[in-house]
Design a binder for these strands. Structure first.
Length: 945
RNA sequence: GCUCGGAUGGUGGAAUCGGUAGACACGAAGGACUUAAAAUCCUUUGGCUAUUGCAGCUGUGCGGGUUCAAGUCCCGCUCCGAGUACCA
């Protein structure tokens, strides 16, 4: 009987759906294991062959864990809100919901064909109200919380209000936008509106004025990656920097916890490092500088307090509020001119173009350690958003300050003995201090750093600053708060309306979800409002607590609802929690479900989410942990990044000016143009000439110059894309070879975490393996050719070697090597002509996670029901693996010379004796006495002469 | 610039604790079966030298080092990839 994979796979796909074998529920009798894939954005192009890589790996792991007796939660869903569907809607008028639904259906069909063991009853879609209700709910919780650094957690905002009422801001160590100070009395005297405004400075979800990329032509804020060279990625319109009032999440409050948490989780070092860099903790000091002839004082942040004696100027960011205060009348015109110029430059331009620019403010600051007056400059190399937006410049020991000083001819004072600063600054934190203070400028009782090493100087300066109250030790983070508003249609609406004072108010929980309204077009309004401004029913009636027509807005009881929507990461930040209890309408997750499933044990996905989703998710989870919803502080215990699958494009070579094509190895003899050719009509780099003629009418009459009767194509690795004709669709592979072959092949391609090109050149190998397996069972017969004879030691050894290897490999996510092991074992078994059920049964079980369809069919042929229900992962037994004879390599001075086979239980001394007296040994020893003999058990006997 | 990876036959890749490098697979060459093709099976396959027979040398990007023994560990480079970037 032939291996008819099409029929087998179809049959079992249906059976699994009918029997609901993948449905899981909380089961206290079994240990839980949660395996999660990063859910996809359902794009119009469908899945290509690169998408399933991680899904196959996680599926193998899930099935493996299930066979080991774990209760495995393995869900899938869709990150359904997003830009492409909205852009498509703008162009075609097609509602994004319709496009999204169609795309989801296609994704689902494609995934079903690959035989994944998802519990589809738990499917979630971020754009469905039953799901986004809880995104909105969590947002309201964040609005009603603040972050306390002392308790290291989020707390209800009411606690902050009572703290203000009792002591004002005294003694509070809490996350905020700008530092505020007031007494309890001052607080009580403030109006209700003022109080609300102050509270926004502390809420975890807050409305704040932040610098954004604003694209006037598109009428929306753009994310950094949507802006290319100062122009919008879509349409190429200019983008400007603008301060806008936006919803933000105070992610920065969690910076230290996000950093600490990395030590507790099993992620790759490189990914942890990426997150550490992104969080960017830097320890330093904040120091106050007085302005000469003024009572103004400003603070700067520095990690090099030790270089204070080398400060020769100060620099303010152009956006800093201090600029206006410190600019003197003589300099005002010049400063304003400079500010105007920098405003027009986009963030991109500033980053791309590092030319030195700046302007003198006219003011001088007083160095608190030397009492010298130093000029205050303004330059765009200082960023408003980091630290205090002001720096002390030490040109001798900072390359940017150095460039600035050289350009404007400002003094440079070297502080490290022997450093050469004629060409560039000396930035390293090493060496012995000098000029600190400069000889002859010592202040009685002042700080002296001369002769100390840099680390000693840093420590001493910090202590001095604190003692003299010149400043304080401060830890700064690069991690910034997340901007949470988008001027988009296709996203979660905010459960927010604006009251008569323009202050945001949350909708009551019981009225959630606030559903996305219908609009006539998916564009901004004529007055520049976001698309939701087009909705006619988008006002909140506070009396009847429902959405009503905008025409009823009176700003007394009926108010405007928020017009922004939430960004893409809103829905993906806590989806893994929702899978635990996806249909619960009363709670985000029931405490029972949460306590059972806890968090994700294994998360597989791409590395591109390192500084986005994986930071937001950890933040979101920590918040839910603080408010008692999630019982775990970290959401993803182990994380594996699957590599990207690149395209492998094929080329044909057309002789210029003709319709003649020359084979790859002969092309150098002609004047040719390489042309992309559809990889689907090329097999092992050999062109299917007939298919090529039919591929494009232009090539109907094409002629070919062949080598060895074949047309060989050239190839190159590039991104998988339609325009390169290198997109390979998984459906096609499933159709041609079957899902099991696709699964095995994608794993066999190479290490999971490595990026690699898709290349079907080796797919026959794994397909042959499955055919060979089938032939062991059926051969040419139509009935099973299996016996009940007892297995021989050789057969048992081959099998148990395999069990040991595959168990180890799966646990280490080394799927490519386990497939090799299957092939080796199958070859051994066919050499032994093994047809024994005892052996083959177990072979089938361990292959089941990799190739579920064929194994299910063969398992069923044994008379069992389903590997998913009645199979158990076998344990290997060392006793079967024992070798009777051990091969020793006899080596002289580390060079292996010959092999001998000796009984495994022979003592070291006897092995030594035999090795030395072996006839071949005398040749190498030449009568000399060996200096040393080293025996590595079961491997090598090394004789040192 | 900084951080983190990587470099092994014609190709994808193995070598899990420093122990006979090249498993497994593809491709290629030769052979068997077949009217023929497909499918299947067998042999060879890092390079060089030798080949009637054994065999020998060399070899994991480059240059050093440690060790009886290095693809693996240490030092110094080269190249490639990823992330990040005026973060004071």
């Amino acid at each position: 009987m032939e291996y008819n994979f099409r029929e087998i796979e179809k049959k079992w796909r249906q059976n699994w759906i009918d029997e609901q074998v993948y449905k899981v529920t909380e089961d206290e009798s079994k240990p839980k294991y949660y395996v999660l894939d990063m859910f996809p954005y359902p794009s119009g192009a469908g899945l290509h062959v690169g998408h399933p890589l991680g899904y196959i790996a996680s599926d193998i792991y899930s099935r493996f864990k299930r066979l080991q007796g774990f209760n495995v939660l393995h869900p899938m869903g869709y990150d359904a809100y997003g830009l492409p569907a909205e852009q498509y809607a703008i162009q075609t008028g097609q509602h994004p919901e319709v496009t999204t639904k169609n795309n989801i259906q296609r994704y689902r069909e494609q995934m079903n064909k690959i035989g994944f063991s998802y519990d589809w009853s738990r499917e979630i879609r971020t754009c469905e109200p039953i799901y986004y209700k809880w995104t909105q709910w969590a947002f309201i919780r964040m609005f009603n919380s603040f972050y306390c650094y002392d308790k290291k957690r989020a707390l209800p905002i009411d606690e902050l209000i009572s703290a203000f009422e009792q002591n004002g801001t005294k003694g509070l160590n809490i996350a905020c936008g700008e530092e505020m100070e007031f007494t309890a009395k001052e607080w009580k005297d403030k109006s209700k509106v003022e109080k609300q405004k102050i509270l926004l400075n502390y809420r975890i979800a807050y409305l704040g004025d932040t610098m954004v990329n604003w694209c006037p032509a598109l009428g929306t804020v753009l994310a950094n990656d949507e802006v290319v060279n100062g122009l919008s990625e879509r349409g190429g319109y200019p983008v400007e920097q603008r301060v806008m009032r936006q919803w933000c999440l105070r992610v920065s409050a969690y910076a230290q916890r996000l950093l600490n948490g990395l030590d507790k989780i099993d992620w790759t070092d490189s990914l942890k490092e990426t997150q550490r860099n992104w969080i960017g903790r830097s320890e330093g000091a904040e120091m106050a500088f007085k302005v000469k002839n003024s009572d103004i004082e400003f603070t700067i942040f520095t990690t090099r307090a030790d270089t204070i004696f080398g400060v020769t100027f100060m620099v303010l960011a152009p956006e800093s509020e201090l600029v206006d205060k410190l600019t003197t009348n003589e300099q005002r015109a010049e400063v304003n001119n400079y500010i105007d110029i920098t405003k027009k430059r986009t963030e991109r331009e500033r980053i791309a173009d590092h030319r030195v620019s700046g302007v003198f403010s006219g003011s001088y600051a007083i160095n608190p350690l030397t009492n010298e007056a130093i000029p205050v400059w303004i330059s765009d190399y200082v960023l408003a958003g980091y630290g205090t937006g002001a720096i002390m410049a030490v040109p001798a020991h900072d390359s940017r300050d150095y460039a600035f000083a050289k350009h404007f001819n400002l003094p440079i004072i070297p502080l490290i003995k022997g450093c050469d600063i004629s060409e560039e600054s000396f930035d390293a934190k090493e060496g012995i201090m000098m000029n600190s203070p400069v000889q002859g400028k010592e202040i009685p009782g002042g700080l002296i750093l001369n002769g100390l090493t840099v680390p000693e100087a840093i420590a001493k300066t910090k202590i001095y600053i604190e003692e003299k109250k010149l400043g304080k030790i401060k830890v700064n983070f690069r991690l910034r708060d997340a901007i949470f508003s988008r001027q988009r249609y296709w996203g979660e609406p905010f459960p927010v309306y604006y009251d008569e004072n323009g202050l945001p108010q949350m909708l009551p929980d019981k009225k959630l979800p606030l559903k996305l309204p219908e609009v006539d077009k998916f564009l901004p309004t004529e007055t520049g409002e976001p698309p939701l401004g087009r909705a006619t029913n988008w006002a909140w009636d506070t009396i009847n607590e429902k959405v009503v027509s905008c025409s009823l807005i009176d700003n007394k009881t009926v108010f405007q609802l928020e017009l922004n929507t939430m960004p893409g990461f809103a829905g993906s930040s806590a989806y893994y929690i929702r899978y635990m209890d996806p249909r619960n309408e009363q709670e985000l997750v029931s405490p029972q479900a949460d306590k059972y499933w806890r968090n994700v044990d294994l998360y597989i996905g791409g590395t591109e989410h390192a500084t986005g989703h994986l930071i937001y998710s950890r933040f979101w989870n920590k918040f839910l942990y603080d408010i008692g919803i999630s019982c775990e502080d970290e959401p993803f215990l182990k994380l594996i990044n699957q590599g990207m699958i690149q395209g492998r494009s094929n080329f044909v070579y057309r002789i210029n000016g003709t319709n003649k094509f020359v084979s790859f190895n002969l092309k150098d003899q002609y004047d040719v143009t390489p042309l992309h050719v559809d990889v689907n009509i090329v097999v092992n780099d050999v062109l299917d000439i007939e298919a090529f003629r039919n591929w494009n009418p232009e090539y109907n009459t094409a002629e070919f110059i062949l080598e060895n009767g074949k047309y060989i194509c050239g190839w190159v690795i590039e991104k998988m894309s339609k325009s390169m004709f290198n997109v390979v669709n998984p459906d096609m592979i499933v159709d041609k070879y079957g899902a099991d072959t696709l699964r095995l092949y994608e794993m066999f391609l190479g290490p999971l975490e490595q990026s690699k090109p898709w290349d079907t050149n080796g797919i026959d190998g794994v397909h042959r393996f499955l055919k060979k397996l089938w032939n062991i069972f059926y051969g040419n017969a139509d009935s099973l050719q299996i016996t009940n004879e007892a297995a021989t030691p050789e057969e048992l050894k081959s099998l148990h070697k395999l069990i040991k290897k595959v168990t180890f490999d799966i646990e280490h996510f080394s799927f490519n090597t386990s497939i090799s092991a299957f092939m080796i074992c199958l070859n051994e078994l066919s050499t032994l002509k093994c047809k024994k059920q005892e052996i083959l049964e177990q072979f089938i079980i361990i292959l089941a996670p990799f190739a579920p369809h064929i194994t299910e069919e063969l398992w069923h042929a044994f008379g069992y029901k389903s590997t998913i229900c009645d199979a158990k992962w076998p344990e290997y037994k060392e006793e079967y693996l024992k070798e009777d004879m051990v091969k020793y390599a006899i080596s002289f001075n580390g060079k292996a010379r010959f092999n001998i086979e000796l009984p495994a239980d022979m003592s070291k001394e006897d092995v030594e004796k035999i090795a030395l007296t072996h006839e071949n040994s005398t040749k190498w020893l030449q009568g000399k006495e060996p200096k040393k003999i080293i025996i590595v058990p079961q491997k090598i006997v090394n004789i040192v002469i």
